[in-house]
Nucleic acid binder design. Structure first.
Lengths: 210, 210, 210, 210
DNA sequence: AATGAATGAGGATTCATTCAT
DNA sequence: AATGAATGAATCCTCATTCAT
């Protein structure tokens, strides 16, 4: 423990301040979206003056993009890796879906905030939206990978359709959960989703082969 | 040409003004969401001064709620009635889904705006959000009705699960279309969705009977 | 009872509307003063649209002046005439003071509103202020009359000083009552005031005579 | 001349800005009361933009309360301490009254503004009104102290009555001066007031003793 | 690494008033 | 005698951002 820490307790810990700002922003942006997130509100919530926020982030856009980035990374860790390659394709898909569902129960802010941004169509697209779409493309890529490895016979078109449908379903179920809260059994619905996607993939793969 | 038309814009017709305001608001709110919709922007787009907007609507909340209500009604008309009772359940479901998909390509304002509001969690819920959720419940009800008539053996639990899944899928696909634009073949994806929901329903009904 | 009154109940009774507007204005202006009184608020309270208020009154200034005038007239009736010429000067003064005090217990709006206006110093004096000052001059004149008749030896200077002091005391006690409410025994204080003014008058008259 | 003075007005001194805002507000609020005081007008008079005013004061309420507080403190200094304990009670009371009268000729802003606020009865009491009433209670307390020391025989009831009467008289005379301007010899009237209060006190003390 | 103070633009909303009907 | 609709100016206040320290 340095003397600076003991006596002042506030001797400039840049990293910690940055983190405090992001924490505050996540909370507010998750509540009120992009426009609804004001620097003043973030400042009030994190205790640092507004001008300090500008020391850590170029502008509001930058701040929100950073929030999405950080939240996505956190989520990626929470979902975990695809897991071992055991069981039938259906078993493996179902396990993965349940895993994702559980990770979404903590309502990752990047998804809620990102979807809000994605639905907007403002002339100058916020950087946060771009980040979200990239991040989402990464996720879609992983899904496509798994699908391709489980059903090698799928042609490219079918693969894209399935991936789109799989991601869309995940989004929709997440929205449902946001709206109806605990009344929605997210894990069960994701398992159902996995099964239906699996069936569709099997059918498409069979047709492709023929 | 009446004198009213000649004098132009002065001493105007209340109903028409109201409509003009709603038209302008739909456009802006669809683009920028709740907070991003400024009364000044609406005023600029519809040509009426901001103070006149307040003659027709109590406040911004009221205005946006009205927009959602009207847009939903327009959409309901656009989707049309469930259609005739012909064909197999699968054919009928697929036709309905395609219908919904097409209607969403045209008049999706209430959905985009509504989803944005639904994703927010602000402490004092905007009236627009409430309206959207009600309106959405109406839509879910209709779906449940159709499902119950096509698969009378479904128990209540299965019915609720299926409805939730069907609505969630629709939301998700709509979001996908908003994000990726024309690259997404909304009609095809809705047809796929209809098929998967149908298969799931058939399976559940069979299990229920047994 | 005419058929119009029976069937419609709202067949244009100008006088009654005017009265309703004044009633509403008195309440609001008494609460919030001149600037705080908005036509919209008056309209909301009396049920008539704002434009109707402008049918009855030229503008806001006119409306408020009318309120003060009417309230003063009501009050004049409530105070009543100076009463019979019986008893010693002190007795008569005390009786008058008690009378005034009792009339002020209903907190006549013209006084509260008038004092608010009187304390303002805006560049263009509201007509309501002028009306109040006139009305107040009338009241001061009556007091001077009584004093002159009770103490004929008072010279003009002394008379003016006494009148000013008497009126000022009344104002001050009224303000006190407004601030502290029922905790102030207005009648007792007015009686004390009457006695002190009486003593001062007697002393001055004696000095004048000498 | 320091660089700060040369750059002029930029990168300014917080305390001084605050003071400038208060100065401007005192002038305007003294003229037009609470509602009549617009932030835009204050901004114009003090040279700082409206948004800067909000850096120093939470809102208009806060600003006006601060004005009253400061003006009262200024006034307290201007009235000065009760002075030395010399002369008869009457002489001392008269000297104090003249002192107060003179101070009211100079720095009466808090009183004029405060009385305006005191006369209002709006549902949500402005903080400025609360501050004024507190401040006024302090003043009344000092008067009661002096009275008690000059007439130790006064019982509590008499003391309260006298204090109320003394304060009310001061208010009323101040109002009179505001209305009639220089035509009112405030010092002379305060001396008369002091004498009458003195006589009343003496009488009450005698009665109390008996 | 931080922050007190400032600022112009813009936010929603209310104002007193008008006028055709 | 009354009113629905409109309107420009003003209201209070918040916005994102800057910059000297």
């Amino acid at each position: 423990m340095t003397s600076a820490q003991t006596t002042r307790k506030k001797r400039a810990n840049g990293v910690e301040s940055r983190e405090r700002i992001l924490d505050a922003t996540v909370e507010i942006a998750g509540e009120r979206g992009y426009e609804g997130t004001s620097i003043a509100a973030v400042s009030a919530k994190c205790g640092l003056p507004a001008s300090s926020i500008y020391w850590h982030f170029k502008d509001k856009d930058d701040l929100i993009a950073a929030v999405i980035e950080r939240s996505f990374e956190t989520w990626l860790v929470a979902v975990g890796l695809p897991g071992e390659d055991v069981g039938t394709p259906l078993e493996r898909l179902t396990a993965m879906a349940a895993n994702v569902a559980r990770s979404l129960l903590d309502a990752p802010d990047f998804l809620r905030l990102g979807l809000m941004l994605a639905l907007e169509r403002r002339p100058t697209e916020p950087r946060g939206r771009t980040v979200f779409l990239q991040v989402r493309a990464v996720a879609a890529g992983k899904i496509a990978e798994v699908a391709a490895s489980l059903f090698p016979d799928l042609d490219e078109d079918a693969l894209r359709t399935l991936t789109t449908y799989a991601v869309a379903g995940a989004d929709g179920l997440f929205v449902q959960r946001e709206i109806d809260g605990a009344a929605v059994d997210l894990v069960a619905l994701f398992e159902l989703h996995a099964q239906l996607v699996h069936d569709a993939a099997a059918r498409m793969a069979a047709r492709s082969k023929a």
